[in-house]
Amino acid sequence: MQFFYSGLTSGSIYALVAIGFNIIYNTTGLINFAQGEFVVLGGMLMYTTLTILGLPVSVAFLVTFIIMFIVGVVFEKFFLRYVKLKTETNLIAITIALAVIMRGIAMVIWGRDSLAVPPYIEDKTISVIGGSMNSQSILVIIVCFFVAIILSSFFKYTKYGKAFRACYDDQTAATICGINVNMIRMLSFAIASLLGALAGAIIAPITFVTYTDGIMAGLKGFAAAIIGGLGSFWGGLFGGFALGVIEGFFAFVLPSGFKDAFAFIILLLILFIKPTGLFGKKKAVRV
């Protein structure tokens, strides 16, 4: 059973990254290849604010979030918006470019070593059915559910949420209805960036953070989003946990080096068999 619990912890990070993918996908129809780098930057900023600057935890979170919000805004406003030919491949290329830039900047600023972030709550081991769990891991899982509930109700029930969804359906129509499409696009990147940072910040005390982590986080988050179906928050959440647990299981029975390969094999299988995922919208496949 132990692998199940450790799977839940890593799964909730995948879920948060997957939801980040979904937010951007739901408003712009794009996949942001830099989503994993947001996670890394979030963890690294927490390291700077907590360990180096010695700020209190709440202030550290606030500073990290403000910076990451700005990063998200800059990402859309100064890069994506100025792509001359907005073809899908060009937009993919620009997010890849930004991912590489962010990775490079993280390496220059924070170096190549793994950074340890101090835990936010008291480190305790709690025994649960068939195993034990760390208090940090429970925090991660709770935060993940909390975020999923808040975001899905935001998109479902509020006026702004409706505006986000309108942008995905038809940008021209949304503009005619008086929705500031550019603003919404920008905000979706900012929220995705915040989510990534949140994921990075809460996982950092457990796994530490290295500048190369972004690739794995991004790919596995994407795998989670694909399993659940792109565009579906609850699907992303489910996909994240499913991927985490399956991966935990394989790490348990096979040499741990192969663990990462399995995530991608699952990703490929889902893409081959049912690219719309388990709960995906029909629109996901475009010819």
Binding site: L30, I31, F33, E88, T89, I92, L219, F222, A223, I226, P255, G257, F258, D260, A261, F264, I265, L267, L268, L271, F272, P275, R286, V287
Partner: peptide, 28 residues
Amino acid sequence: FPTLKLHGHYLAMATLGFGMIVYILFNE
């Protein structure tokens, strides 16, 4: 055969995933 039926970001991620699998196999 299955991958090239995908487009855009699906294809990009699928090929990326394939590259990672091969890389992991070389390592392991």
